[in-house]
């Protein structure tokens, strides 16, 4: 089947999406059976509008990371097509900062690889660190930073790519609840300030509802889009808000149903 991957910004036509995923499937070679294929993603169609915040929700192993890697261009789909507005930035669950560089130099490397001229890099890196409230941490080494600070530097580095689309793969899953809560507030603020589009992967229902304008639920084995919710609660929200809790309860019920189906074989 034909597959195409477009980086729309390379041609001059205006695009109306930050990411467009059309009928995408992905199979991996199945372990054990020679020649066998394991279908991980099945016919996924999903648009992320410019400036939209979408969370992709699903049980562990349902193919969320696989889909994000496809959108990031780190892997090719088995079928279907993927288009993005320019090259997206990607943030991982592990901070993925380079330990041989300081916090500031990690951000500067992204600027440098983007082609920012040397005299402006330092200033721009300081500005981005300030955006994630890490002014004064320019010279800190990665191992001297706390888990939350590392993820904020990683966010600053991702923002340094100046992409119109930010992909985030469970970036706060390894953090404690209070730090995660603070980072939710920061991410919402930065999303509002920069107008970047975000595709955010999580298995945490509350987190999905806390952050997103739209929640997309993936089923497991194979991953299909099970249902979508538009979240009307105005930002900034709190994870403890009753409206967040109510919608979370509804989505959790749906997710449980999806998981339960797999027990009935």
């Amino acid at each position: 089947m034909a597959t195409t991957v477009t980086r729309a910004a390379e041609d001059a036509t205006a695009v109306t999406y930050a990411a467009r995923v059309e009928h995408v499937s992905k199979s991996f070679p199945a372990p054990g059976t020679p020649g066998g294929q394991q279908l991980v993603l099945d016919d996924i169609t999903l648009d992320v509008a410019p400036g939209e915040f979408v969370t992709l929700l699903g049980a562990s192993g349902c193919g969320k990371s696989t889909l994000l890697n496809l959108v990031a261009g780190l892997d090719l789909p088995s079928a279907g097509s993927i288009g993005t507005d320019g090259r997206p930035a990607l943030m991982f669950q592990e901070h993925a900062l380079f330990p041989w560089l300081t916090a500031g130099k990690n951000v500067e490397l992204a600027l440098r690889l983007r082609g920012v001229a040397k005299p402006e890099r330092r200033q721009e890196a300081e500005r981005l660190l300030e955006l994630v409230r890490l002014q004064g941490s320019y010279r800190k080494r990665v191992h001297e930073l706390s888990g939350g600070m590392r993820q904020r530097v990683a966010l600053a580095r991702a923002l340094a790519q100046d992409s119109r689309l930010l992909l985030m793969d469970e970036p706060f899953a390894a953090l404690d609840a209070i730090t995660r809560d603070v980072l939710h507030d920061e991410l919402t603020r930065i999303w509002q300030e920069t107008g970047v589009s975000v595709l955010f992967v999580t298995h945490n229902v509350r987190e999905a509802v806390r952050l997103a304008g739209r929640v997309v639920l993936l089923s497991s084995r194979p991953g299909r889009i099970a249902r979508e919710w538009t979240v009307g609660i105005p930002q900034p929200r709190r994870i403890e808000d009753s409206a967040v809790a109510e919608l979370s309860a509804e989505i959790t019920e749906e997710l449980r149903g999806e998981i339960r189906r797999h027990g009935r074989h």
């Binding site: 888990g147 939350g148 209070i178």
Partner: peptide, 28 residues
């Protein structure tokens, strides 16, 4: 807070302070 518009913006100053506290507690 039962109101769906629970959008009382968290005091930015308080947030920065909380964050600074977390950073200080957890820095090696």
């Amino acid at each position: 807070d039962a109101s769906p518009a629970a959008g009382v913006p968290r005091d930015a100053h308080a947030l920065a302070g909380l964050e600074a506290g977390l950073d200080a507690l957890d820095t090696v």
